[in-house]
Amino acid sequence: MQNEPLALRVNDAAAYIGLSRSRLYELIADGVIEARKLGARTVVPTSSLRAFVEAAPRKAGA
C-alpha cells in the first residue's frame, strides 16, 4: 500500500483488520500482534497487522 503509516493507534488498527478493539488487545497480550508504547499512546506497526492477516488460513474457494 502506498503511503501506508508505519503504525496505527489501537482503535485504527482494529478497524484496519476488521477486529474489535478488545480482540486486538487480546492478540497483543498473547504476543500474536506487536505493539509499542509512544509516550502514553499504544501503537501497532502496520507490518505486524499485515503479517497477522497473511498468516491467517485461506478460505476454501477464495
Score class of each variant (00 low, 15 high):
Gln2Phe: 04
Glu4Tyr: 01
Pro5Tyr: 04
Pro5Trp: 05
Pro5His: 03
Pro5Cys: 00
Leu6Asp: 15
Leu6Lys: 15
Leu6Ser: 12
Leu6Met: 13
Ala7Pro: 03
Ala7Gly: 03
Ala7Tyr: 03
Leu8Val: 08
Val10Pro: 02
Asp12Val: 13
Ala13Asn: 04
Ala13Pro: 01
Ala13Thr: 04
Ala13Arg: 02
Ala13Asp: 01
Ala13Leu: 05
Ala14Asn: 07
Ala15Asp: 14
Tyr16Lys: 05
Tyr16Gly: 00
Gly18Thr: 09
Gly18Gln: 09
Leu19Trp: 11
Ser20Phe: 12
Ser20Leu: 14
Arg21Gln: 10
Arg21Val: 09
Arg21Asn: 12
Arg21Pro: 00
Ser22Cys: 03
Ser22Ala: 15
Ser22Thr: 15
Ser22Tyr: 11
Arg23Ala: 09
Arg23Tyr: 15
Arg23Trp: 12
Arg23Met: 11
Leu24Val: 13
Leu24Phe: 14
Leu24Cys: 11
Leu24Asp: 13
Leu24Lys: 13
Leu27Arg: 11
Leu27Trp: 10
Leu27Val: 04
Leu27Asp: 05
Ile28Met: 15
Ile28Lys: 14
Ala29Leu: 10
Ala29Gly: 14
Asp30Val: 02
Asp30Tyr: 06
Val32Cys: 05
Ile33Cys: 04
Glu34Lys: 14
Ala35Asn: 05
Ala35Pro: 01
Lys37Glu: 11
Lys37Trp: 06
Gly39Glu: 08
Ala40His: 10
Ala40Glu: 13
Arg41Cys: 08
Val44Gly: 06
Thr46Lys: 03
Ser48Cys: 06
Leu49Pro: 04
Arg50Ser: 07
Arg50Gln: 13
Arg50Val: 11
Arg50Cys: 02
Ala51Asp: 12
Ala51Leu: 06
Ala51Tyr: 01
Ala51Met: 04
Phe52Met: 03
Phe52Leu: 03
Phe52Glu: 02
Phe52Gly: 01
Val53Trp: 04
Val53Leu: 09
Val53Thr: 13
Glu54Val: 06
Glu54His: 09
Glu54Met: 11
Pro57Phe: 07
Pro57Cys: 07
Arg58Asp: 04
Lys59Leu: 15
Lys59Gly: 00
Gly61Lys: 07
Gly61Pro: 11
Ala62Ile: 03
Ala62Phe: 08
